[in-house]
């Protein structure tokens, strides 16, 4: 008992330190990196919500972009129509997406792999398009979402992007810290039991359906937060901000991170943010044709994806762990 509390405390301490480090970093780099840092934090939240769903509860979602849209639109609507403080808009984004996730999860719990994949895919395609049906959603050009200027006490050279980064990074840290805790709790154990063997879990007295629905709800709430963060970084919400390619990108990020290893989430997020830039510098150096330049980022991500799935399907982190485990087993002999 005592040990548990201790490790809990040290983890909290670690996150606080990490936060401090990040904020120091945020002061030292240029605005583009700060902006990318905010995007990175958004991806961290979004990808970890998928990792929770897929890696820890064994469900697939091709439609997390739609849940992000729910979060983004809820935040923008409450901000614009009710003028609520920004932190409350984020909370509402989380709650709305979680409620939508609970409804969807109830249906999802009855569906196995490909059926769930199909349903969530249809949602990803279908949901953003209804913005055109209802005027208050702002149509194709969307709604503005202004989180406001940073507090005046931060000084006049504190740029809006730094403010975005602070909000996004602290949200991501809190979200990951909370997720780590929940994964170590009773719920985490239940989810893993369900993931590993549904029948055995049922025999052990676990209500499988409820466990899956809960995982979907929590995951959706996180996706909602990510959606609100995305809306913040582009200061708007619109249907085209949540295309099918976003859902696919998140899945890509989750697989690159390793779906069973939450700490690996950085790898996926960094890859998603960095690839276009790397592709850009490669093509500027070598390519002559516009066709190559424009198609290279997509090609690069796809190649990486195929390679990872073929060579290290459980993700680089898990792979590294198992290599180490094998080595230490070897050493013991």
């Amino acid at each position: 008992m005592h040990r548990f509390q201790h490790s809990n405390f040290s983890r909290l301490l670690f996150f606080v330190l990490l936060g401090g480090l990040l904020f120091l970093a945020g002061n030292r780099v240029d605005e583009l990196r700060v902006y990318q840092g905010a995007t990175l934090a958004m991806y961290v939240v979004a990808i970890s919500s998928l990792i929770l769903l897929t890696g820890y509860s064994g469900q697939v979602s091709l439609g997390h972009g739609a849940l992000m849209a729910i979060g983004g639109y809820s935040a923008a609507l409450t901000r614009n129509y009710l003028s609520l403080p920004i932190w409350l808009c984020f909370v509402i984004a989380i709650l709305t997406a979680a409620i939508a996730g609970a409804v969807l999860g109830t249906a999802a719990a009855r569906l196995s792999g490909p059926y769930l994949a199909g349903t969530t895919l249809a949602l990803a395609v279908g949901l953003p398009s209804i913005a055109n049906q209802f005027g208050f959603l702002g149509g194709e050009q969307g709604l503005l979402f202004d989180v406001g200027m940073p507090p005046a006490s931060f000084g006049s050279d504190f740029s809006p992007y730094k403010w975005y980064f602070w909000i996004a990074a602290s949200s991501a840290l809190i979200a990951i810290w909370w997720l780590q805790n929940i994964l170590r709790s009773r719920f985490g154990r239940i989810w893993r039991a369900v993931r590993d063997n549904e029948v055995a879990a049922q025999l052990a007295g676990i209500h499988v359906g409820k466990a899956k629905t809960l995982a979907f709800t929590v995951s959706s709430g996180l996706a909602g937060l990510a959606g609100a963060l995305l809306a913040m970084t582009i200061a708007t919400v619109s249907p085209s901000a949540f295309p099918l390619t976003l859902s696919f990108a998140l899945l890509t990020g989750a697989v690159l991170s390793g779906v069973t290893t939450l700490p690996g989430v950085m790898i996926g997020a960094v890859t998603l943010v960095a690839t276009p830039e790397i592709a850009d510098s490669i093509s500027r150096r070598f390519a002559s044709s516009e066709n190559v330049t424009m198609n290279l980022p997509g090609l690069l991500v796809s190649t990486l994806l195929v390679l990872v799935v073929l060579l290290v399907p459980n993700g680089p982190v898990e792979q590294w762990r198992s290599v180490r485990a094998r080595k230490s087993a070897h050493a013991a002999h």
């Binding site: 990040l22 945020g26 240029d30 583009l32 990196r33 840092g37 700490p263 960094v270």
Partner: peptide, 22 residues
Amino acid sequence: MNRRKFLVTSAVLVTGSLSLAT
């Protein structure tokens, strides 16, 4: 321990990637 190491590695990764442009 592993996990913590990874978190540290991650932190280094972020800081590294962020400071690339300093």
